[in-house]
Simulated assay, not measured.
Amino acid sequence: MSTRRIVARLPSAKTIATGFMIGYKLVFDKVSKDGSGKCDCEHTGSVGDRVYGVIFVVLCSERAAFDRFEGVGTGYKPSAVRVDTDAGEMSALTYVATNRQSGLPPYAWYKQHVLVGAHEANLPEDYVRKIEAAIAINDPDLTRTGKDNSASR
């Protein structure tokens, strides 16, 4: 959700809306190549669960790069979804984890990227608090940690 991180990877990216999907929840259960947990919107079917996010529009010519950044074929698959926004219901593409492990903690720098995006998008405070409450661990690769922390500021 971090606009700076998305635009650094996909220069055409423009935010068009924020919204939510009912019957989903945010979890960090996607097994990453580095062994940490990454975000996933897990379908629960419960009307009490909501996952919030940002809808970006990108050039079709950047789609292959987007898929590569998101890990299509190595842990995520694209999925068409309907998102409730202030402007009404919209169709969007999200990436759903295909390789999951419950209870997998994210690295602290990754969780920070998620929080930066949540704050930028002015997501509901109770939702942001749930992200803040997620247990995160330190990345043993200090080079990666420093690089990714500076990118989220």
Rank of each mutant, 00 (worst) to 15 (best):
residue 116 V to Q: 11
residue 116 V to K: 15
residue 31 V to K: 10
residue 123 L to H: 07
residue 20 F to C: 15
residue 49 D to P: 07
residue 151 A to P: 01
residue 62 E to T: 03
residue 137 I to Q: 09
residue 103 G to E: 05
residue 32 S to Q: 10
residue 123 L to G: 03
residue 56 F to R: 01
residue 65 A to K: 15
residue 128 V to F: 07
residue 126 D to L: 07
residue 115 L to S: 05
residue 106 P to Y: 11
residue 76 Y to A: 04
residue 57 V to C: 05
residue 126 D to Q: 10
residue 99 N to V: 09
residue 133 A to N: 14
residue 98 T to L: 05
residue 149 N to S: 00
residue 116 V to N: 08
residue 109 W to F: 00
residue 115 L to I: 07
residue 36 S to C: 10
residue 129 R to W: 08
residue 80 A to L: 14
residue 8 A to C: 06
residue 21 M to H: 00
residue 119 H to C: 10
residue 17 A to E: 11
residue 98 T to A: 06
residue 102 S to A: 14
residue 123 L to I: 04
residue 62 E to A: 01
residue 106 P to Q: 14
residue 86 D to K: 06
residue 130 K to V: 02
residue 88 G to Q: 09
residue 42 E to H: 14
residue 145 T to W: 09
residue 52 Y to E: 10
residue 79 S to H: 10
residue 61 S to K: 14
residue 70 E to W: 02
residue 64 A to V: 03
residue 127 Y to N: 13
residue 147 K to A: 12
residue 58 V to N: 03
residue 43 H to I: 01
residue 115 L to Q: 05
residue 10 L to K: 06
residue 84 D to K: 08
residue 143 T to Y: 06
residue 15 T to G: 01
residue 35 G to K: 08
residue 9 R to C: 06
residue 147 K to C: 05
residue 63 R to F: 07
residue 94 T to V: 08
residue 120 E to S: 03
residue 51 V to F: 04
residue 62 E to G: 00
residue 6 I to F: 10
residue 28 F to K: 04
residue 22 I to P: 01
residue 44 T to C: 04
residue 139 D to Y: 01
residue 48 G to M: 08
residue 116 V to C: 11
residue 87 A to C: 04
residue 12 S to D: 01
residue 148 D to E: 13
residue 50 R to G: 00
residue 133 A to I: 08
residue 99 N to K: 13
residue 53 G to A: 06
residue 2 S to W: 08
residue 133 A to V: 09
residue 61 S to Q: 11
residue 71 G to C: 10
residue 24 Y to F: 15
residue 138 N to R: 14
residue 33 K to W: 06
residue 141 D to Q: 08
residue 7 V to N: 02
residue 149 N to C: 01
residue 6 I to W: 11
residue 15 T to R: 15
residue 88 G to S: 11
residue 34 D to M: 10
residue 11 P to F: 00
residue 47 V to A: 14
residue 46 S to A: 09
residue 37 G to M: 09
residue 11 P to R: 04
residue 65 A to F: 05
residue 134 A to Q: 15
residue 46 S to G: 00
residue 146 G to Q: 10
residue 29 D to L: 06
residue 97 A to E: 02
residue 131 I to E: 05
residue 64 A to T: 02
residue 81 V to S: 04
residue 111 K to L: 09
residue 55 I to G: 01
residue 113 H to T: 11
residue 26 L to E: 01
residue 76 Y to N: 03
residue 2 S to V: 07
residue 14 K to V: 09
residue 16 I to T: 12
residue 37 G to H: 09
residue 86 D to P: 02
residue 109 W to S: 00
residue 61 S to W: 04
residue 98 T to I: 09
residue 16 I to N: 05
residue 80 A to N: 12
residue 100 R to Q: 12
residue 44 T to G: 03
residue 77 K to S: 11
residue 40 D to S: 11
residue 149 N to M: 13
residue 135 I to H: 14
residue 112 Q to G: 04
residue 128 V to K: 11
residue 10 L to N: 07
residue 113 H to K: 12
residue 89 E to Q: 14
residue 18 T to N: 13
residue 45 G to K: 12
residue 114 V to W: 03
residue 84 D to T: 08
residue 53 G to H: 06
residue 19 G to S: 08
residue 99 N to Y: 01
residue 95 Y to T: 03
residue 134 A to S: 12
residue 125 E to G: 08
residue 131 I to K: 11
residue 83 V to A: 02
residue 86 D to H: 02
residue 114 V to P: 06
residue 65 A to T: 15
residue 90 M to I: 08
residue 19 G to I: 08
residue 150 S to Q: 14
residue 129 R to P: 03
residue 110 Y to C: 06
residue 112 Q to E: 15
residue 128 V to R: 15
residue 79 S to P: 00
